[in-house]
Amino acid sequence: MTDSVQRLAAALQKLPSVGEKSAWRMALHLLEQDEAISYELAHALVAAKQKVRRCDRCFTWSETAICSVCSSENRDTTTLCVVEKPRDMWVLEQSGRYRGVYHVLGGVLSPMNGITADSLTLEELRNRISSEPIAEVIIGLGGSNEAETTAHYISRILQEFPITVSRFARGLSAGMDLEYADRFTLDQALNERRVITGGYR
């Protein structure tokens, strides 16, 4: 094999979920295609890397200093949802239900993986709460132990603000059959149950 193909395969292999075999398949596929496809890919890559930056306010990826969600006039700026990464924000955006704004943390706390409070955008979150009209912070983190710890941590450091802090509900997922739920999920579903009709007794 030529050096150039080897270099290309090695570069592709650095991408997530790409192993040696896939990297070679992609490299050889690109060689067989029209040159225009390679140029398109190369340009798209460089352009994205040059144009895309962090939003100054919420830290998601954006081509402008303030992202389209933060600069929109149709968002409810009193509600802020804290997410781990831009991808989570996009998933919520796709659902179309959430009308508030976001704050991207950049990870979840795990000292053994070198992720401490100052490597996340927590200080920026506090600054935003001080300066923006935020009344509720929704913690929209996942269900891992690290995410739980981080949720707990955020609620602690936001205690000083006169705001509501809430978190996503946990338990049964939509369409899930009870018999397939594990004990932990059932425990959570029971703990976080919601009243449908309140009684007086």
Partner: peptide
Amino acid sequence: RFDSVLCDI
């Protein structure tokens, strides 16, 4: 880098 809030948790 120590963080007493995190250690409490």
